[in-house]
Design a protein around this nucleic acid. Structure first.
Lengths: 329, 329
DNA sequence: TTGAAAGCGGTACCAA
DNA sequence: TTGGTACCGCTTTCAA
């Protein structure tokens, strides 16, 4: 049979209420009794019923994280950090993958099984946001990709990242710099582009070549192949993520060009794959830890009934110099 | 305020019980009344409290999937299929990433917030299995990597996959075939190796060269580089997953060898990246859909109080021929 | 510091 | 078909 609070009551001889308080570390319980309760809990293998608790308190102590794709090393880090940080504060995290069929996920959100939701760039952030708005479930968006305003969001400063990447290439002495981005409509793409242009303009330069595609290897691969065919390959390339960078490097290799000897390449995300490769890819690292910490902080505020912060948070990325870039000669 | 069943009672003029039955589609309710209840639910935006239901029924209608890494296209497919299949039967799925800190996840499992658990090769399947055993939570293991017996598991037939891969290479005319595997201790590695050897032995051959490492790109990259240095590069290589295959192809390229012209390479998993690349990687595809369906079926049985099946399920993989292999000449 | 009693929102048995 | 009623397991006033 299931062990309930009653068994603890019997085992300790204390009252119902005292036991309940003791397990929640309520101050008004004698240490002696608290210990008695703790011991009985251990001995009987008692675990309080989450459902019963939720029923009376109205809180689940669960936070849901909705995520669109798993393959990303960047998200991996964030999720791990979220897990850890929320746990410290008594919350559990459940993950939900939303690729196409959202009905499962919407059903989940509607059932109020969680206290709060973090939207991590799911394909339909707007749809989910609407459901959550209706259900009055606190939520926030991380790394969003559609509009730049409305709900409260946490992201890394993509414009600054783009700036850093190109500034670094310029500092190395390159002047003809090519840009290869993912989806042109995504916010990350736009911002990284803006930053890149800014760095160039500061020194009175323009981009040499710009192409868009998807955030995947073929985009990088095909773009450089095309550039080479047209004989307008830049001295250095800023790929808007590591997948593109990898494709770029391979495209160059396949045409007999060496990285970084002939062309320098810088990526974005500093994902694990950026280091699994020859050459290791110089990349812009997004502050996953900091973003996760901020998200937890904001969420806890929201759960405490705090107002939504009006300003979005942008955290600064950093430059990880590795082997795919070197001084222009 | 929150909408409860009471509001529906008031709105419809029916009794508590009738309303409760109506929403659960209990047969003993007049269609007319059922409709009345449904309409009121819609109108008031009523969603039954999962917690209250759980408290009385003892069921949560949630299945947890514990997963160790996100980056894998194979898992992606399985999870999507699990989501869909479970939803059809009234269950919701929550995902849990367990990389290092397992305390969060163990806490989750102990709280009986889910009716059943699917372990997808988390680093510590044995640890989790023990907790679940203790808590008497039904669980099953998919694609497990440690011992080959004990708890009920569902996996694809890795031996057959290994056999298919090498058989295909042999059929193409190759005789000197190299094998590059991931962790030598993992079950998948061992089985794929067994299958590969079997195919070779059937024709009276032996493996030309075998190396182990991790399931990542550097393993493939470094292995072929070493083989080339030692001047013992095989005619064709069976890489035990697509990451290794990709590394292998790049290692060959960097040494001036062409794939498939000089060396044929076959991978495993047929992950998205196998197709994002030049050449597209010929690969063994694991039956994700079938595995997910089987898992759901078994889990539903388990939840209904069925005994654990004693036999493990092994589902057959299939061969996806693409561009990284061609006839030996 | 302790405890009695009133729910939290539903379900299920059983009688009407 | 319908409805009364006893819980499910725990928290939370409020009085002792």
């Amino acid at each position: 049979m299931k062990v309930t609070i009653n068994d603890i009551v019997k085992a300790t001889g204390l009252s119902y209420v005292t036991v309940s308080k003791a397990m929640r570390n309520h101050p008004s319980v004698k240490d002696e009794n608290r210990k008695k309760v703790m011991d009985a809990m251990k001995a009987l293998g008692y675990v309080p019923s989450a459902a019963a608790r939720t029923l009376v308190t109205g809180k689940t102590y669960v936070i849901a994280v909705m995520i669109s794709e798993l393959g990303d090393g960047f998200y991996d880090d964030i999720i791990e950090a979220l897990n850890r940080e929320f746990f410290k504060r008594g919350y559990l995290v459940t993950l939900h993958m939303c690729k196409k069929d959202d009905q499962e996920n919407i059903a989940f959100l509607e059932q109020k099984r969680v206290d709060g939701v973090i939207l991590m760039a799911p394909y339909k952030e707007v749809l989910f946001a609407r459901v959550l708005e209706e259900q009055k479930v606190p939520y926030l968006i991380m790394d969003h990709q559609t509009r730049d305003s409305q709900p409260y969001t946490i992201l890394s400063d993509n414009q600054q990242g783009g700036y850093m990447a190109v500034k670094y290439l310029l500092d190395l002495g390159f002047r003809r710099i090519g840009l290869i981005g993912g989806e042109a409509t995504s916010l990350a793409t736009k911002e990284r582009y803006k930053g890149a242009v800014k760095a160039l303009e500061e020194l009175g330069f323009q981009t040499d070549n710009t192409a868009y595609g998807q955030y995947d290897q073929p985009t990088g691969y095909q773009t450089v192949q095309k550039w080479i065919e047209q004989d307008r390959i830049p001295q250095a390339i800023f790929a808007f993520d590591d997948h593109i960078a990898l494709g770029t490097i391979n495209g160059l290799k396949d045409c007999g060009l060496k990285v970084p000897e002939d062309v320098s390449v810088i990526g974005y995300d500093d994902s694990p794959m950026a280091n699994q490769y020859t050459p290791k890819i110089t990349s812009i690292r997004q502050p996953a830890q900091a973003m996760a910490k901020k998200a937890v902080e904001v969420m806890i505020d929201l759960l405490a009934g705090g107002e939504k912060p009006t300003q979005n948070t942008k955290l600064p990325p950093s430059l990880c110099i590795k082997e795919s870039t070197h001084l222009f000669k």
